[in-house]
Each structure stands twice: as C-alpha cells, then as structure tokens.
C-alpha cells in the first residue's frame, strides 16, 4: 500500500481530530468512568460516596450478578444455536433462482430490518395467554394453551424464540453469501463419485461454510448478549426475575433503584464478558483473514 506524505505535517491529525474527540468523550471516557463509578455509592441526588468493592460484593451476595450472567449466557447459547441452524436450513432450501424464492428470502429477512420494538409488541400480542393467536390456534387443534410469558419456565425460552425469529433471516443471508463461494465443480465431482445429497452437504458444503458459521455464531453471540428491547417490552425482567438479563438488570439498577454504583459494577462485568466474546470472534476472524481480505466483526 502506497502512502502519500501529508501536505502539512499537521493535516492527518486535524483530519482525525473530530473522530478522536468523539471517541474520547463518548466511548473511552464512559468506559473508564463506569469503572470508577462502580467503586462509589451514588443515587444521582446526593454526592457520590466511595465504597470500594462493596457494589460488587452486594451484587454477588444478593445473587443478582450470577443470576443475570447465567440467564444471559443461557439465552445467548439458545439463540445462537437455533438461529444458526434455522438460518442454514433456510439458506439451503432457498438457494435457488426464481421470483418465489426471492420473495420468501425477502419476507424472512424483513424481520431483521423491522425494529425490535415492533417485533416485541407483535409477539407480545401473539403470545398473549388469553386472546393471543398462538393459544387460539393450539386450542383449535385440541391442545392446551400456555402462559408463554408469565410461566417462569417458559418466559426465557419464549423471548429466545422471538429473538430467533428476528435474527434467522440475517443468518440466512450470510449463509446464502457463503453458499455462492462453494465451487459448483466440487459438488459435481462429488456427485459423479456417487455421493448422495447428505454426503455432499456433510463433506463438501459444510466444511467450506466453516468461516461463515464462525461469523454467524460469533455475531449472534454478541448481539444476543446485548438483549434488552424484547425484555423491556415483553416481560420487564419477570416473572420473578426469570428474564432479568444483564442489560435489563443494569437499566433497573439505575432507573428504578437509582443505584448508579451498582449499575456501573454490572456494566464492568458486562463489558468484560463482551470483551471475551469479541476476542474469541477476532481470533476466528484473524484465522481466516490470511487467505482473503475480510472486514472485521461488527
């Protein structure tokens, strides 16, 4: 790559100044400030008071920290697994020319474009225990209805299903792009050697889709780890804290309990786990970058 020398030595810095200023004020400062605030007790009204690690200790002993972390990880794992499998299946079925297939692809992907609030409100009504369409359909089939969002065992899986509904189209699009890179002659050669459909998928397509799978699962993990909107709109962390995922717990600590310190301590934990997830993603990305120029995870 050939670089030009700047006309004036200060040019590059001036061109970068606005960007770095914003990054400093709204990205790096908040990160450091969250670390600092996590050591204080502050209700936004009276001056902050230094309390050391008390916030972390309280979150630990109350069980909130571990509970939220566990819920978030379970949710994330379920969402990633289901949306990856579903996205791959849809991509394989819809990887064909024709207007109907294009229509089906666009319909499925549209859920990714519509806002989380729309999706959450829509499913809140469909899953409504009394008048909702899902229970009505089940009853018509002679099956019992369920309290999808107020049964403690069902609430988190229901939220995960809604999230999968929204994200599957994105996974599908990524897999469709990945499928374009599977050379047709390899599949033809395998077919000539007598490989059946499943064998061709198992031994040709699937190994070649590995980088796509790595990208789909890692972006899915990061997106689902940040889940908030569906929780806020559909369950508000309930029933009985069974959907109180990390970001919702942070929100509740600051805006409902006015505990800035505890919220910040949760932010620090959230950031560290996210950092771990992203470094894992970066490793996957770097491993495949050797061959082709790829963009980073987002």
């Amino acid at each position: 790559m050939k670089l030009l020398s700047p006309r004036r030595p200060t040019d590059p810095y001036l061109l970068l100044l606005p960007t770095l200023l914003i990054l400093g004020c709204f990205f790096f400062y908040p990160l450091l400030a969250a670390g600092k605030l996590s050591l204080y007790s502050w209700d936004l009204l009276t001056p902050p008071r230094f309390v050391g690690l008390d916030n972390y200790r309280a979150l630990w002993s109350e069980g909130l920290l571990l509970h939220s972390l566990e819920l978030t990880l379970v949710f994330s794992l379920g969402v990633v697994t289901a949306s990856t499998i579903l996205g791959l299946a849809l991509a394989l079925l819809l990887n064909r020319p024709g207007r109907l297939a294009a229509f089906a692809r666009a319909s499925i992907f549209s859920a990714y474009i519509v806002s989380w609030v729309s999706v959450a409100l829509l499913w809140l009504w469909i899953l409504d225990a009394d008048g909702g369409a899902l229970n009505a359909a089940l009853q018509r089939l002679g099956l019992p209805g369920w309290r999808w969002l107020s049964d403690p065992r069902l609430a988190l899986p229901s939220l995960a299903a809604v999230t999968v509904w929204k994200l599957a189209g994105y996974a599908m699009i990524l897999y469709l792009a990945g499928l374009q890179d599977v050379p047709a002659h390899l599949l033809e050669a395998a077919a000539l050697d007598g490989a059946g459909r499943w064998q061709r998928f198992r031994h040709v397509t699937w190994p070649l889709l590995r980088p796509t799978t790595a990208f789909v699962t890692s972006t899915g993990a990061i997106a689902s780890f940040q889940v908030f909107d569906v929780v806020r709109v559909m369950t508000q962390g309930g029933p009985m804290d069974h959907t109180n995922v990390l970001v919702y717990a942070i929100y509740e600590q600051i805006f409902l309990n006015l505990r800035v310190g505890r919220a910040s301590a949760l932010v620090v934990v959230f950031f560290l786990v996210l950092l771990g997830l992203t470094l894992w993603q970066l490793r996957l990305w770097l491993r495949r970058e050797g061959a082709e120029g790829q963009s980073p995870p987002a």
């Binding site: 990160l31 400030a33 969250a34 942070i250 910040s264 932010v267 950092l275």
Partner: peptide
C-alpha cells in the same frame, strides 16, 4: 483506537454518558 471502539456498545456507555 477506532477499531477498539467496536468493543464498547451503547449498553456499556450509557450510564456515564447519562450522568455526564
């Protein structure tokens, strides 16, 4: 520095930005 900010989503930033 630019790439590193991919690691800092809104959910990490909002508490201090709000108080600021």
């Amino acid at each position: 520095l630019v790439v590193a900010t991919l690691l800092i989503p809104a959910q990490v930033r909002f508490v201090p930005v709000f108080t600021l």
